[in-house]
Structures are given as structure tokens and as C-alpha cells.
Design a protein around this nucleic acid. Sequence first.
DNA 1: GTGAAAGCGCTAACAA
DNA 2: TTGTTAGCGCTTTCAC
Lengths: 330, 330
Amino acid sequence: VATIQDVAVRAGVSTATVSRALNGKSTVNPALVHRVITAARELEYEPNGLARSLRRQETAVWALVITDIQNPFFTSVARGVEDGAQAAGYSVVLCNSDENPQKEQEYLKVSLQERVAGVILWPTSVHTDVSRLLEHDVAVVTIDRALRGRSVDAVLGGSRSGARRGTRHLVAQGYRRVACVTGPSGNPAADECLAGYEDAIRAHPGGDGDALVRRVPGQVKEGYAATIDLLAQPDPPDALFVANGPLAAGALEALAARRLRAGRDVGIVAFDDAPWTRLVDPPLTVVSQPAYDVGRTAARLLLSRLDYPSAAARTVTLGADLVVRGSSSR
Amino acid sequence: VATIQDVAVRAGVSTATVSRALNGKSTVNPALVHRVITAARELEYEPNGLARSLRRQETAVWALVITDIQNPFFTSVARGVEDGAQAAGYSVVLCNSDENPQKEQEYLKVSLQERVAGVILWPTSVHTDVSRLLEHDVAVVTIDRALRGRSVDAVLGGSRSGARRGTRHLVAQGYRRVACVTGPSGNPAADECLAGYEDAIRAHPGGDGDALVRRVPGQVKEGYAATIDLLAQPDPPDALFVANGPLAAGALEALAARRLRAGRDVGIVAFDDAPWTRLVDPPLTVVSQPAYDVGRTAARLLLSRLDYPSAAARTVTLGADLVVRGSSSR
DNA sequence: GTGAAAGCGCTAACAA
DNA sequence: TTGTTAGCGCTTTCAC
């Protein structure tokens, strides 16, 4: 493996000149630039990013820590982040915390040790601790998490208002017992979702509170089980508000297993406008969050944070849209 | 930001001792270990991974370069890789090449410059060049790509045989004009898929070759357009074999738009056993690849490659299963 | 415009 | 068992 030394020797110049030439500094004789580039190519020289970052005391890498890579919503967010980063010359490494606070902490530690320039974090819980990162001057942007204690930049996806709108819509369609299937307590997105649901329900008494709420890990299997459980109650719900796409897939499976038809028998509205939601019969009414824009915005916030490290923290809230389809009417 | 120096001063020892203590070397006085650890905590010391890797000439990071993070199949592969890596103490960074050879090349370059320990690569095309990595002694494992030129470890997902089985199944069900919607030419998975389709079709003449084949980027929108196009032909197909989940979602949308019912009007079999494939009506017949195991196996191959850099290249082939549901019978 | 040399933070000989 | 020291590969003053 060739080093900058080898290139310098071959080109008959000093390592300083090689460095300058390869980094496009204008103060280098064109003839030398040419010799350096030729030598580098001949030796198949690849600059050592570790050494460069160590010396420069900065890296061109962001970490994006998300909770569930299986959820299509996150993958759209990831694209938004990536596009924003790439445009500014940063690479993004994706870390999947898998809803596991320990894994999350591990990835945050690695991010810190590898001295990434910034972290975009979808926290597994409101207890996730980022103070360590902040103290080490790593820029942090959180997604879907209200500020608490230390103020950090955040982009909020409108989970609460979206859940409120979705639930209200079900009530307006004449459903009387609307249940809610959402993620674990402490999970910011899940908490927001529940809060929005409760906003809407409080205005329309008739529910019996927690009997109609199920909090489970946000995967297909759990959505199925929670729905089966809800339907088995003495006084089962006649509608469901569901916090994400995988949970919704599980809920629909459960309805099918119980020979219930979405809409006619049990109204259902869910977060995440995944491609398949239009394919099921009846098509699924969804609350659509601007996933790509969330990612793009997070990238934007991170960039300006890197430019102005001591600026006041900003929060950007994006709106969610209700897309009415067949699953929310009889 | 505290360095090992600061810790050494505070603990009243040399940096060497700090390093040894923090890395759990057994040859250090327990009392000193305690002092060092206390000092490190008090200073909120975080080791600088860049400096460590530079000195050790090795990193504990793998790059996983995939072509489409939106495809659920890849996300399962990613989990398999991650689990295998984590068990051995490696972190995995995910790079999304987005079917774009340029982006892919960029990520491979970054991997090389950051001196990752190994790369697991799902290539965008058979032309993807990994020689640079190999020359720099970066371990490489490819997924779903037959060896060409340089021999590298590979795990094959059984795309060809799966496509063959799926297509044969359609023929056996009595469909006469089976079309194929697959990814771009050069994309290894797409090529394998087409090859399997052709294996099956050749045995049952009656098709007219390329008129029934559509090669498009593997996304929902393209699947829709390709299917609309196929159906608009003078002599349209009565069945479809589709190369991945997103394409299949698009194909189903197209059928719905043309008021055709899957199975009865147009038989359809697709790769990827996504959760939603059971929810559509009729449920989708799929070829199911063992995605998680593919990832797990790739991790295993990479680990043994790291242990034995000069061993002969290995290829592991995993089988695909045909899951017959309603969309492939009248 | 170019080179010599220092040093980023860490680990691993080698000495003591 | 502990400390001293060299050096990983690069960038960047500071002289020239």
C-alpha cells in the first residue's frame, strides 16, 4: 500500500507538495501537479482517510441512527438525509438501533469515538442520552423527539397532529369505539401518536381509555397479536388507529384471520403511506408523513449547526396529511 | 476534549499505562488500573478511534454496500450481516448505492480510504470493479454475483433457480404467455432472474422472446409502467413473473388500473416474500429467498476471509422457495 | 512555489 | 510492572 511518502519519492518532490497537489491547492506549479498525479496513479495511491482526519481534526462522515431499517418510512428519511449530505460533501453511515436502547448507545459511542462530524438521531426513547456527544462538540439533530433538558435541533414529523386528525376522521365516520395500536411507552413517535389519539378521543367520550390502547414493539407480528387481542375483548373496538406501516400490516392480517372486513366491520387508519397500502382491499386510509422531507430537513439543520455551532437550537415541524381511502368508511 | 495524555497526567502514570489499562491488558497493577479508570471517567475521556486505527493499522468496521435500501429484501440481508458482525465485534456501516454505479464507486472509494476491514457488496452491475479493494488487501464478499475474473467469496441467493421454478409454476398452471419484468441489464440479480425465466420458457415454446420481457429500474413506478406497457400489446401476456417486491407492487397497481384480477385474468408470481404480499386479494404467490441467511452467510464468509486472507475463494448458494398462493391460479 | 519538520492521539517495541 | 520513545500517514505552519 503506497503512502504519500512513496508518491513524493517517485515524483521527486516533498510530501508537502504531494499533499498540496492532491488537494488542489492553487499555489503549486502545474508541472509538479502533473508529475504528482502521474506518480500517484502509477502507484495506485489511495489517501489514508484516518490519517487525514486525525491530522485535520475533522471527518466528512455523518451517522444516521434509526430504530428500524425494515420500516419503509425510515428508508425514505434516510434518502432525504443522504441527498442533503452528499450535496455538501459528507458521507452518511446508517446505524440500525433496532428499537434497542443498548444497541443505540453502542452506535452513539462508536460515532463519538470515530469522531463523526454530526449525528442525526431517531431516538429509541425519551431517555436516550446525547449529552456525551454534545460535550464533545458533535453536532446532533434529533427526529421526532421533543426537546428535553439540553436543547438540540429537532425536526418533528407531525405525529401528534396526524394521529389526532386520523382518529377524528374515524369518529366523524361514525365509528364509536376507536382503539389505538402504537409503539412502546417512551418511544417518542409512539408517545406522540398516542397523545394525538387521546386528544381526539377526549373530545368524544364513550371510549374507556386504556382498555382500547395497545403498546407493542412496532413490527408486523406484534400488530397482529395486539389486534387479535383487542378483538377478543368482551366489548371489542369497531375501529383502529395504528401507529406505523408494519403494525398496520399485522392488524390487517388479524382482521382477515377473524373474517372481518376493513371499513365495513372495523374502520382502520394507519400511519405511513407505503406502496402496498393502495393494493389491499379496501385500500388503506393513511396518515402520510413527508418522510423524505423530514430527512432532507434534518440534513439542512445539521449543516447549519456545523456552520454555526453556537446558534440557538431550532425545531422544524412538518405537517402530516390524511389520505382517505376505503378502509375508514362502512 | 480529553486525550490519553490528560488522563495520564491526572492518574500520575504514563500514557502507555493508560493505554494498557483501558485496553484490559493483564500486565498492569490493579491499583493503577483503578486510578486510570477513575481519571478517565472524571475527564469524560473518549478514546480517539481514528488515532487508534491509524496506529494499529486496522479498523473494526465493515461496509455493506447495497443497491436499494427501500427494498425490504435488502433490509433483511442487512440484519443478517449486522448480527454476524456484531457477534464478532465489528460495526457495520450501510451504504446505499441506489442502483447507481457512480454512487457505488464513490462508496467503495470511501471504504478504501477509511480503511474498513471488509466490504460486503451487492453490486449494481457485473462491471463493478473491486480490484482496487483487493489490491489494498480489503476483504470482499459479494452477494448474488457470479465470480468473474478475480475470484472473490460470494453468496448466491438462488435467483436463477427461483425464477425458473416460479415461471415453470405459471406454465404448469396453464398460463400460455408468461412475461417477465426484471431489473436493468447488467444487474446481476436481474440477469439471473431473466436467465431462470428463460430456462423455463425455452422448454415451453409459444412465447415470442423479447416481446414479453421488460427490463426497468426495480421500483414501484417502473413496475407499473412496464406492466401497463405489456398489457397494451396486441397480444398481451396472460401471466407475469416479476423480479422483486417493489416491481410487483407496481405490477399489481397496473392490473387494478386495467380492471384485471390477479390469478383469474393475469397470473402473477414475484420474488420477495414481503409482509404485504399476504394482504392483497388474491394473496401473491412468491419466490422467497432466505434474505436473513444470505446476510448471515456473507458475514460468516467475511470473517473467515479475515482470518485466512489467502484461502481459496468460496461460493455458497442458498435455495429459494416457491410459496404458492392465490395469484397464480385461475 | 517548495521543503523541512512538527504533531494530530494512540499503541507497541524496547528499556529499565 | 512501568516508562520512554518511535512512528502510523497525513496536513500545515514556518522558513527559504
